[in-house]
Design a protein around this nucleic acid. Structure first.
Length: 332
DNA sequence: GCCACCGGTGGC
DNA sequence: GCCACCGGTGGC
């Protein structure tokens, strides 16, 4: 069941697959750090184990900015400029990938220990052809959500893209490959499209945190809801939406998973937990952008897939809030 | 005071 | 290990 995500770049091995991707873009500014490339030889553990289950959906992201005040272990992207996905930069007129002005906005967290950090955000969406396994860019978030909703029953093929790319076929080179140039995450399949007028927002957290991402639903009123409990409550308080047909089944707070193995901090072992070998149906993978400023359609990209994780590992320093966590940890 | 982002817990 | 929920907090 487990397959190597690298298979993506070498179609032909996988079985029936449909993988979506959403690309996450973030910017890096500046940098005072000397470029280093200590990680050029590093190997990603994550990639090799990622699964390419036919049910997978993937998200792709550019690397987020590093904490500029941290040690200079962020390696090599010192001089990288922030790059949001820019369709014009692709230089291919076959596809116009929407750079989502909302999701592409660089975000900064506001925590002291994350100073200057810019968070990744979704910049593009991709889906894997179930026949050739090449990744195809999806022009809009809406189209992506539409495809994702029924991906299990209606696999995606290159031909599916004819709606926006008339000539596309499996003979064409992939729109992009998992070349280590950005963060990848495998999305969940069959997530309902948000109700009309509502938006499903995916917010990528900074690396090294306890969670990879958060999903929010934004109601037409602008109200942000962050759990099924909140949605339910909101609908109860606003029966007009229910009357319009909005139902709980249209909401899902499932988040994608980073391909990069160490993107999320591991939770300390809890002996009470039963071992669980079962792999969820889907896995997510992230690729960190190594500085390229565009999604190079059809271009192979550098062969590396080294862990961006190395550059993030030491980011988090203890804080007062962590001392609480420590206390909680010890007490349990 | 709001809210976006993060941590942590409990459950599985 | 993943998921769901929600409290806390700094910046605005």
């Amino acid at each position: 069941m487990e397959r190597d995500h690298l298979d993506l770049a070498s179609p032909g091995k996988a079985d029936h697959n449909d993988i979506y991707g959403s690309s996450v873009a973030s910017r890096r500014d500046n940098m005072k750090h000397e470029p280093k490339d200590s990680r050029s030889s590093a190997r990603s553990g994550g990639i090799g184990t990622s699964n390419q289950n036919p049910r997978d959906v993937a998200a792709l992201a550019e690397e987020e900015e590093h904490n500029t005040d941290d040690e200079d272990n962020h390696s090599e992207d010192a001089q990288k400029q922030l790059v949001l996905y820019n369709p014009a930069a692709v230089g291919a007129d076959e596809i116009a990938l929407d750079a989502d002005p909302v999701n592409s906005q660089p975000r900064r967290n506001s925590f002291p220990n994350y100073a200057s950090r810019i968070l990744p955000s979704v910049g593009a969406f991709t889906v894997q052809c179930a026949n050739c396994f090449k990744w195809r860019l999806i022009p809009t978030k809406e189209k992506y959500e539409e495809i994702r909703e029924h991906i299990l029953e209606q696999p995606f093929y290159c031909e599916t893209a004819h709606e926006w790319r008339a000539e596309l076929s499996c003979d064409d080179p992939p729109d992009l490959t998992q070349d280590g140039s950005r963060l990848w995450a495998i999305d969940k399949p069959n997530i309902a499209q948000p109700p009309p007028g509502w938006e499903r927002l995916l917010r990528i957290r900074g690396e090294g945190g306890t969670r990879f991402a958060d999903v929010y639903y934004v109601a037409p009123s602008g109200k942000r809801l962050r759990s099924m409990v909140e949605v339910e409550k909101y609908l109860q308080e606003h029966p007009d939406y229910v009357a319009q047909g909005v139902s709980m089944s249209q909401f899902s707070f499932q988040i994608p998973r980073p391909l990069q193995d160490n993107y999320v901090k591991k939770r300390p072992y809890r002996p009470a937990l039963a071992p669980d070998e079962t792999e969820p149906v889907n896995r997510i993978t992230w690729i960190a952008d190594n500085g390229d400023t565009d999604l190079r359609l059809g271009m192979p990209g550098p062969p590396l897939f080294e862990p961006l994780s190395q550059s993030f590992k030491k980011k988090r320093t203890p804080s007062k809030r962590m001392s609480n966590a420590d206390a909680a940890c010890k007490s349990s």
